[in-house]
Write a protein that binds this DNA or RNA. Structure first.
Length: 193
DNA sequence: AATTCTGTAAACATTT
DNA sequence: AAAATGTTTACAGAAT
């Protein structure tokens, strides 16, 4: 959550141009995940909460409260990150902390993964892959982090599971094993009303 | 000092 | 039947 909060803070300190800056920040954080520039607020900033969901501290609905932060236009396709394969082959790393543990919670990682997907939804396997591709630490980490990802998805009310009907699957997801497309995860968007 | 958040492990159920 | 996925509980440590 730290990452997301940081993005919001950076935007709030600027003008009303909320639309894009946080995405730039997101990209920056992905390219090199340094210590966060500002101390983010703790989670649970549900600015106008009436529903029980929004009372929950795992709720990300506060992201909506400022200028329709979400959803926005599709995230511009990121240029490939400096290839981690190349880094592992070459001892000199362009990003000093690229193989250290990212300072982001699993919730943040999951959020980023889903946000970076074309349809804003991913199967668990897709979340794994996004994390591994963007944070090489998890390439060699023991498998327990996957358990943590699933644990987060189940526990956090910020994510919900989407069951897609079979006709959709057979129609346009034929290039990926079906079992990984039947179940998708999506951020919950709660309108501030 | 108490509470909250996060990560980790584990058991178990369900789905593929 | 095995593996992947999903749910839930428990605990520890850090942060607040």
């Amino acid at each position: 959550m730290a990452y997301l909060s940081t993005a919001v803070q950076l935007n709030e300190s600027g003008s009303s141009a909320l639309g894009q800056r946080w995405r730039v920040t997101l990209r920056h954080c992905l390219l090199s995940y340094p210590p966060l520039p500002v101390q983010p607020p703790r989670v649970g900033l549900c600015l106008s909460s009436n529903t029980s969901d929004q009372d929950d501290l795992t709720c990300l609905s506060w992201l909506h409260q400022r200028g329709n932060l979400l959803p926005l236009q599709p995230l511009p396709k990121m240029t490939p990150l400096p290839q981690r394969e190349a880094q592992s082959a070459a001892p000199t790393q362009a990003l000093p902390s690229s193989s250290s543990k990212p300072p982001y919670s699993f919730s943040s990682l999951i959020f980023m993964a889903i946000e970076d997907s074309p349809d804003k939804r991913l199967p668990v396997k897709g979340i794994y892959e996004w994390i591994v591709n963007n944070f090489p630490y998890y390439r060699t980490a023991s498998g327990g982090w996957r358990n943590s990802v699933r644990h987060n998805l189940s526990l956090s009310k910020s994510f919900r599971r989407i069951h897609r009907d079979r006709s959709q699957v057979s129609t346009y997801c034929d290039d990926v094993p079906i079992r990984y497309n039947r179940v998708m995860w999506q951020k919950i968007y709660i309108s501030s009303g």
